[in-house]
């Protein structure tokens, strides 16, 4: 464990909690892409099946359970409890355009053609594009609630911190995982446009609105 991975995990946890609290407190999931949340639930489910097969540490186990629990709770709040506030018309990204190619790539490019490894690879590739429906929805509505931008900031920051974690681990431990690194770079690049808007607008107290 190193400072970049720890702050990365805490940033990820903060994002997940911010989103859950936003929906729960405002009793509304307006502006939130339910499809991205479905993808995140799928990412955690396929990545953390090793909870059933191996124990790494209490931290590892507890964080995985929190991530999975919050992901499904968020999907439940969006599609069941606060379904009336779900903006389905603007959440129109076709999930099959992401899941099918990612599934195919996971079968072609992986470290080991075993069940858990293929699922882990699938979850790594899927996570790198899972935010696309959310970013697509914001581009369609042309704006985002400020709390939603904070959620996206911490979510994008977490994988950027993981990139530094991988530099650290390569230098000090000789560890590197090319699949996770390439996917992590792609994932972080997808946030660059948002990061620019977040820093130039939201941090200056303005509302995040895309050029009409």
């Amino acid at each position: 464990m190193n400072i970049f991975r720890l702050t990365g995990d805490l940033s990820h946890l903060a994002a997940i909690i911010i989103l859950l609290l936003k929906i729960w407190k405002t009793r509304s999931c307006a502006g939130i892409s339910g499809k991205s949340q479905i993808l995140f639930a799928l990412v955690f489910t396929t990545r953390y099946l090793d909870l059933l097969t191996s124990f790494i540490s209490f931290y590892n186990t507890i964080m995985k359970l929190i991530y999975i629990g919050c992901a499904y709770a968020t999907v439940y709040l969006i599609y069941m409890k606060f379904k009336a506030t779900y903006d389905g018309n603007h959440d129109s990204f076709r999930l099959e355009f992401l899941v099918v190619p990612v599934g195919g790539l996971a079968c072609l490019v992986n470290h080991d053609f075993s069940f858990l490894e293929i699922l882990w690879t699938f979850s790594i590739y899927l996570e790198s594009v899972a935010i696309l429906p959310q970013l697509f929805m914001i581009s369609k509505t042309g704006e985002a609630e400020t709390i939603t931008t904070h959620y996206l900031f911490f979510l994008g920051l977490y994988r950027a911190l993981y990139l530094f974690n991988w530099i650290w681990r390569f230098y000090f431990e000789g560890f590197f995982d090319m699949i996770a690194i390439v996917a992590g770079v792609v994932q972080t690049i997808l946030y660059c446009d948002f990061f620019y808007l977040y820093v130039t607008k939201v941090l200056k107290g303005k509302k995040l609105s895309l050029p009409a």
């Binding site: 991975r5 995990d9 990820h12 990545r47 090793d50 191996s54 790494i56 540490s57 590892n60 964080m63 995985k64 991530y67 470290h111 882990w120 993981y162 974690n165 431990e173 000789g174 560890f175 590197f176 995982d177 090319m178 996770a180």
Partner: peptide
């Protein structure tokens, strides 16, 4: 090469 020993990262 990739260090084996499971996925210790979240």
């Amino acid at each position: 090469g990739q260090v084996t020993g499971g996925k210790d990262e979240l």
